[in-house]
Simulated assay, not measured.
Amino acid sequence: MKYQGSCHCKAVQFEFQSDEITTALQCNCSICLRKNAIMSQQSYSPSDFKLLSEKANLAIYHWGDEEVNHYFCKTCGVYPFHDTTEQPGYYRINLGCVDDLEPRELAIIQFDGRNEL
């Protein structure tokens, strides 16, 4: 299936290919708790993910070990996806930014990012 998504103001738009999304991931680390994001369980490869808007519309926030690139829209501040410095271009999607998908209705898997080593 092809999914499309965006930040709130639509300055950041993207699409990705995926099997039907039926599950999601929610992490309890300090940044994920504050973002309250419900994430895709899988990361999408560069061949499955396409940024449709200008990369200049995005900013990156790094926290702690700086291994995760937390992307956010420079205009509205919404966080649509992230990748890691270990696997750049393999994006985990904020499912709240995906059109025609209700993330709170998915089976949500809790991830203990707070205590992961």
Rank of each mutant, 00 (worst) to 15 (best):
N57K: 10
V68M: 10
D48S: 15
Q13V: 10
I21V: 14
Y79K: 03
A59K: 15
Q17P: 02
A24S: 03
I38G: 00
Q17A: 14
Q13D: 02
I21W: 08
Q41P: 07
F111P: 04
E66I: 07
F111I: 09
S53M: 06
F111Q: 12
N69S: 01
D99G: 06
E105S: 02
V68E: 12
L58I: 00
E105K: 15
A107W: 05
F49Y: 07
G64I: 08
N94E: 02
Y44K: 02
A11P: 03
P46N: 07
T22F: 07
C73W: 02
S53C: 10
H70I: 10
L117K: 14
C97V: 00
C97D: 00
C7Y: 01
A11N: 14
H82F: 10
G89H: 02
N36A: 15
L25R: 15
G64Q: 13
I38M: 03
Y61K: 08
C27N: 09
L58Y: 03
T85W: 03
Y61L: 06
S6I: 02
N57D: 09
A24V: 06
W63H: 12
P46A: 07
M39W: 13
H70K: 07
R92V: 15
L101A: 02
G113T: 10
N28G: 13
K55M: 07
Y91T: 03
G96N: 00
E102C: 11
D83K: 04
I109V: 14
R104N: 15
S40H: 01
A37C: 07
F14T: 03
D83H: 03
A11H: 14
K55W: 11
E66G: 07
I31G: 08
C29V: 11
N36M: 10
S53A: 11
E102M: 14
Y90C: 05
T23K: 14
H62W: 00
T84V: 06
I108K: 04
G5I: 01
H62M: 08
Q26T: 13
Y3K: 06
T85E: 15
G64P: 04
T85D: 13
A56S: 15
I21N: 09
S30P: 10
F81A: 02
V12E: 11
